[in-house]
Amino acid sequence: MRMTRAQAKERNRSALLDSALQIVTRDGYTARLDEIAERAGLTTGAVYSLFGSKNGLMVALITEHLRPYYEEIEQAVPAGVDLLEAVDAFARYYRRSCDDPEAVSRLSLQITFLDRALHDPELGGRLAASVRSQENQLIALFTGRRHGREPVTSHQSHRLTIALNALFVGLSQGVLLGLAPGADEDYFADAARALAAGMVVTEQEPDQR
């Protein structure tokens, strides 16, 4: 059966993203578009047609890189448990991801994008928007769960999500770099639960303070 135009477009998009992942992981942001396109069996024109620019391709790459991570978190955190139990499950999932064979490559990719974003405000803004969009899934995952006598509000969940991501990024880098050899699942879970339990609870929005 002949492929439709939409199917061909999606196939080409996936091929370029797969190629970009391999080459950017190897070469960083100096990866050449012509090599990415050639590896995918396409031309650089396809890159511009599908992504608009090299930055557009990079943003799509990090978005695709993050999507499975957030989807797996939703599966790892049980429905119906309270906030601290949800945070515990999230922490243990994050620690297990450090043992994945691709964990070092993922860290390298993250550092590559962070370094480039610091020197390219346009790329930095687009990457930040992409990450915030994905983080909304975590905010929704925690919102409404019981913590003490009250359900967690969206505002509280937002603050907690930012803090947990910062905690886990730091700890996971420590694990992968050999700086935190004792940081096992229990360590991640204990740190995350302590953070969640100790955060100041407020019902006020930031502009009401």
Rank of each mutant, 00 (worst) to 15 (best):
A15P: 03
A15V: 02
A15Y: 00
A15T: 04
L16D: 08
L16C: 08
L16E: 09
L16G: 07
L17S: 10
L17C: 10
L17E: 12
L17N: 09
L17K: 05
D18K: 10
D18S: 13
D18T: 09
S19N: 08
A20M: 06
A20T: 03
A20K: 03
L21Q: 14
L21K: 15
L21T: 12
L21E: 15
L21A: 15
L21W: 13
L21I: 04
Q22E: 14
Q22D: 13
I23K: 03
I23R: 10
I23H: 05
V24I: 14
V24E: 04
V24P: 00
T25S: 15
T25E: 14
T25A: 15
R26Y: 05
R26D: 09
R26K: 14
D27H: 11
D27K: 13
G28S: 11
G28P: 00
Y29P: 08
Y29C: 14
Y29F: 13
T30F: 06
T30P: 00
A31H: 00
A31V: 01
A31R: 00
A31Q: 02
A31W: 00
R32V: 11
R32G: 12
R32E: 15
R32Y: 05
R32I: 07
L33H: 02
L33W: 00
L33F: 01
L33P: 02
D34V: 15
D34C: 11
D34P: 01
E35A: 14
E35M: 12
E35W: 11
E35D: 14
E35L: 14
I36Y: 01
I36N: 03
I36H: 03
I36R: 01
A37M: 09
A37S: 10
A37Q: 03
E38T: 09
R39S: 14
A40W: 01
A40F: 05
A40Q: 07
G41H: 08
G41L: 10
L42G: 08
L42I: 08
L42P: 06
T43R: 13
T43P: 02
T43I: 07
T43N: 12
T43W: 07
T44L: 01
T44K: 09
T44I: 12
T44H: 00
G45S: 13
G45E: 09
G45Q: 09
G45T: 12
A46G: 04
A46I: 06
V47N: 01
V47C: 06
V47L: 08
Y48P: 06
Y48N: 13
Y48M: 12
S49D: 10
L50H: 07
L50W: 03
L50Y: 02
L50M: 09
L50T: 03
F51A: 10
F51D: 07
F51Y: 10
F51R: 02
F51T: 01
G52V: 00
G52L: 05
G52K: 06
S53G: 04
S53P: 00
S53W: 00
S53F: 00
S53T: 03
K54M: 10
N55V: 01
N55I: 03
G56N: 11
G56Y: 04
L57I: 04
L57Q: 02
